[in-house]
Lab assay of single mutants.
Amino acid sequence: EPLWIRPDAPSRCTWQLGRPASESPHHHTAPAKSPKILPDILKKIGDTPMVRINKIGKKFGLKCELLAKCEFFNAGGSVKDRISLRMIEDAERDGTLKPGDTIIEPTSGNTGIGLALAAAVRGYRCIIVMPEKMSSEKVDVLRALGAEIVRTPTNARFDSPESHVGVAWRLKNEIPNSHILDQYRNASNPLAHYDTTADEILQQCDGKLDMLVASVGTGGTITGIARKLKEKCPGCRIIGVDPEGSILAEPEELNQTEQTTYEVEGIGYDFIPTVLDRTVVDKWFKSNDEEAFTFARMLIAQEGLLCGGSAGSTVAVAVKAAQELQEGQRCVVILPDSVRNYMTKFLSDRWMLQKGFLKEEDLTEKKPWWWHLRVQELGLSAPLTVLPTITCGHTIEILREKGFDQAPVVDEAGVILGMVTLGNMLSSLLAGKVQPSDQVGKVIYKQFKQIRLTDTLGRLSHILEMDHFALVVHEQIQYHSTGKSSQRQMVFGVVTAIDLLNFVAAQERDQK
């Protein structure tokens, strides 16, 4: 057995438009009618409502009807409940999964919650491996369901041993009777949507819809739904939504950006999952974080739909894509998950301010006199920076000697690579993860907040409520011999709460 199987392995699926269902090699399930009293909570997966979006479509000038398939009504709160249950049931049916076995899954959280929910009911041990950027709410729900959680670096490539995929496979090879159901490759993922989600949409719309818009992560949702719609409703256009920084969209030119990270969760990847059939997507749109969270908040405030950030991405694209539809036509959007997962993220004004998705003037509360002053007023001194090749031991000596707790790590040209902190280095040394002679590049981390000289002290204040420091950066445009230009970030300084307090105190003292 291989040590790991690539999540982007070539698909062996034989589905073709027009091929009889009787030739399918898979076990198919028909939607079942729910009894009045459910035998367990797993029976509350599927049969989610279709809700008309009344205000947002009109606000953006849509002539067509805009409908939302509300997947956050599933038992675990997301569309991923469907595939989690289906993968477990299919693994039980073919004898792969037996009582007492362990389920391991690399996930952005929602599939993990679905699997942990099913594992709690069915009696399996469950280990979820997820990147650090995923919300604390997801972690809390997983723990409450009895799952064990392993976190991995957000910026690790999918084929790196440190990625959530790599760590999951390492655990599988170490733990007896453990299984990775593997949402990236498992046919049960798109089949769950082909058999149930798509049929529900067709039934709820009486077979009449002209466009379907869905955000894409593993691709199982859009693949399964689109294949069924292509068979039953061939005139329906399928629109895929991919965040900026991901590479799922086609044509490839759409993916060209210097951005590699994004805040919206559960969609987009740096590889093409095996289950994603991009041939059934008629057109791709890219979405960005700001519009995703703005539209998610709009869905909550104006439509009462308590959905997550990827739902915002989907609707932001839908109001663009559906401009081509006329009166009497219908566009369906998939709202994948609930706001429950993001209470401390985009639902929080403070978080939105820190990330730059909300401006101070958007909030009406009274601010102190210094709130709208610029960061450049602080008069920061030149920063202490270190090269990635310097040793951890030497870096600790320098920081202690100069009285700093942290320093930016830059390359020879001064471009920011990340940050090192005294606390992080000492804990890594004590844990045996690094040696004093190791290069400081081994303990770089990139989960820090950046701020510009033109940003306000109010925004800085919000950042420092949650973080010990902020890195002050400025952009530099560099022209190359080819005539092309590129933008790079340079370090201007490091600012802490002490710097802000000293500035405010000094100004008030001078005024007296």
Rank of each mutant, 00 (worst) to 15 (best):
I300S: 08
G356V: 02
L248A: 05
A292C: 09
Q487V: 14
K283Y: 09
K355S: 09
R350E: 05
F271C: 00
E291G: 05
S348G: 02
L384F: 12
L453H: 01
E324P: 12
L358K: 11
V410F: 11
D438K: 11
R509I: 07
T294E: 11
Q256P: 04
R452E: 10
G423K: 12
K286E: 06
A296N: 04
V409G: 07
K442Y: 13
Y342A: 01
T344W: 04
H468W: 05
R340N: 05
D411F: 08
E508M: 12
A301L: 14
V495K: 04
L429E: 03
G312P: 04
D362W: 09
T395Y: 10
F448Q: 11
G356D: 03
Q259F: 13
E465M: 04
W370L: 05
G379I: 11
A506M: 10
M352I: 11
L457M: 15
V315Y: 08
L387I: 15
F492Q: 11
P408L: 03
D499V: 00
M419W: 13
T344V: 04
F346N: 03
H480W: 06
G423I: 03
Q435K: 15
P388A: 14
I477G: 06
E263N: 07
V339Y: 08
I416N: 09
Q487C: 13
G240S: 07
Q406C: 08
A470R: 08
G245I: 00
E290C: 11
W351N: 00
M490V: 14
E361L: 09
M343C: 05
L464H: 07
T261H: 12
I498A: 12
Q354T: 10
F404Y: 11
Q406M: 01
T261E: 11
D242A: 02
E291R: 15
K286R: 03
D510V: 15
A322D: 05
E303P: 03
T385N: 12
P273Y: 06
S481V: 12
V275G: 02
K359L: 10
E377C: 07
I239E: 05
I238L: 04
Q326A: 11
V415E: 15
E291P: 02
V495N: 08
E397Q: 15
K355I: 04
T496R: 07
K367D: 03
E252F: 06
E412K: 15
C307T: 09
E397K: 14
